[in-house]
Design a protein around this nucleic acid. Structure first.
Lengths: 116, 116
DNA sequence: TCTTTATATGCTTTTATAAACATATCGAAT
DNA sequence: ATTCGATATGTTTATAAAAGCATATAAAGA
């Protein structure tokens, strides 16, 4: 009988929920990170080859569900406006990324421990 | 500023992959457990209000992708046939369930440790 | 050989999700 | 007032995933 552990890979996903609603996951965090980098939802969407519409809806959900304000939007003005990540938003992103990393490390260790 | 950790919940899913293909996840494991309980794919499907077609396709994928034989099928015969979980199948199920539990415990501890 | 019951699949129809297209709006700066 | 670039949404179209329906097949036992 072949040993399984040598050929098994474990993949995981995790989400932050607030009030029974999912408000952060890997995809959303990437969007937020790109917004943080570019200062623009449109540019962030383009960067991850996602339609602006979709990205806008995603961000809308994040805002509706997050327990704290994640972004600050600006309409019109010199450069047409823009979107910036709030301080709380940055904290939430970091918390998620760190959490994800810890879980990944734990899983890696556990895989090594698997014996059949 | 409100503290986030008191209101955040973390949800996760994990999958076992073999050869870049997902072959076990929560839903599939439940199907297998029900097959193990009933000895029948049809009964298992019914039990989790899933169409037989769907369950059969799910099981087909599991079999195609798992590194070891998970079930043994029997066509025809006295009671029309049936499906039983192999010894390796049972081991895979247990491994998955145990793994999932450990990750859940780890996550629970990490949540408690979150501070903002 | 006919019955029984679970597995094995083809085919069609819904439903859900995502993509695509089209505009409207906002407000600083010119 | 007009321009400009980004946000804000309604509407429609295309794709994909799930459901539903129908039927064939296997093989032990009566």
């Amino acid at each position: 009988m072949k040993k399984i552990n040598k050929q098994i890979e474990v993949v995981f996903r995790l989400w932050f929920y607030s009030n029974k609603d999912k408000f952060l996951g890997k995809g959303r965090v990437e969007l937020l990170q790109r917004i943080d980098d570019t200062g623009s939802l449109a540019k962030a969407a383009e960067g991850m080859k996602m339609s602006y519409r979709q990205a806008w809806q995603m961000l809308k959900e994040i805002n509706e569900r997050a327990p704290v304000p994640i972004v600050e939007k600006h309409l019109g003005g010199k450069n047409g406006g823009g979107t910036i990540i709030t301080k709380e938003g940055k904290k939430a992103i970091k918390t998620f990324v760190d959490f994800e990393l810890k879980v990944a490390e734990f899983i890696k260790k556990e895989i090594a421990r698997l014996k059949f």
